[in-house]
């Protein structure tokens, strides 16, 4: 399902390839659309309001100007993909959105990241509550060396939830939302490392969901996984977008085409093109975008 490398063909054929992926996706969606029309309608309304607005964002590591003048709106309750070649600043950009760059001493930033109307970099803004509202899933599955239960409940416990019934409820809800409950409900006190890679990544997603965030950031969440596990996570991402704003970084363009509504193309720290996924892959406006998605990029 996942092709890591595009076969070298003519660019027309390539664009057609993406069309197939997109068409398949549209067909799938039409079926669901009929079933959940009312949900969709409601969603359409909320779609208009940006969940996160990025204004004039510039970022540096030491003297390295990693992100340049980024302006971008992330729509609520939908999946936005960020694509681009390795080293172009995708991860750095993603970390700007939940202030995870704060942990690097030589990181500097200018500009605003506005979550529901409030700049998360304001002096009055609290890092803890920002990260509580914006969850993150990392490239490599990184469960704690603890049990499944302890992994999920780590977040709720540090945020002061002590009620046992409430914790049990969170445990079940998060694991169900991450499509992991059926596989682990009889071994919640097993060690997290006993799970497969794909299960571990879903555990990490469940762990992020347990603190009930509004936005979920994912940094190449499938790059360490096999195709079957990847497909599961992609389905999950689609499910999650019904409730959460999902922003996913990927260098796998088919994946971006499959899972996202919106796609931003980042190149050497600049947003080259940002558009609806269908438009960006079928009729890219910029030459660089076309070169990149047809695999003719250096």
């Amino acid at each position: 399902m996942v092709m890591e490398e595009l076969p070298v063909q003519g660019q027309k054929a390539e664009l057609k390839g993406f069309s197939a992926v997109l068409k398949e996706k549209r067909n799938l969606k039409n079926v669901e659309l009929m079933a959940e029309e009312s949900v969709r309608e409601e969603k359409k309304l909320t779609l208009q309001a940006p969940k996160i607005e990025v204004r004039d964002l510039n970022a540096w590591f030491g003297d390295n100007h990693v992100l340049q003048n980024i302006n971008l709106d992330f729509k609520a309750r939908t999946v936005t993909a960020i694509i681009g070649p390795s080293g172009c600043g995708k991860s750095t950009f993603l970390r700007c959105l939940n202030r995870m760059n704060d942990i690097y001493p030589d990181f500097r930033m200018a500009g605003e990241v506005i979550l529901d109307g409030e700049n998360i970099y304001d002096d009055g803004s609290d890092v803890v509550s920002v990260r509580k509202r914006i969850g993150m899933v990392f490239q490599k599955p990184n469960p704690f060396p603890k049990t499944i239960r302890e992994n999920i409940l780590f977040g709720p416990l540090i945020h002061g939830i002590r009620n046992k019934d409430k914790l049990d409820e969170i445990l079940e809800k998060s694991l169900k939302a991450a499509a992991l409950w059926d596989e682990v409900n009889d071994r919640l006190d097993d060690y997290a490392f006993d799970l497969s890679g794909g299960q571990q990544q879903r555990l990490c997603i469940a762990r992020a969901l347990a603190i009930e965030p509004e936005v979920i950031l994912m940094d190449e969440p499938c790059s360490a996984l096999d195709p079957t596990a990847t497909a599961k996570i992609e389905d999950l991402i689609y499910e999650l977008s019904k409730k959460y704003t999902v922003i996913i970084v990927t260098h796998n363009m088919q994946q971006a085409a499959r899972v996202s509504r919106w796609t931003a193309f980042l190149l050497t720290g600049e947003i080259i093109e940002y558009n609806a996924t269908e438009t960006l892959f079928e009729t890219p406006e910029r030459k660089e975008t076309e070169d990149y998605i047809t695999g003719r990029f250096g």
Partner: peptide
């Protein structure tokens, strides 16, 4: 990565 995961959860 354990420290990062924990910080990302708001710890």
């Amino acid at each position: 990565q354990y420290r990062r995961a924990s910080m990302a959860l708001g710890a």
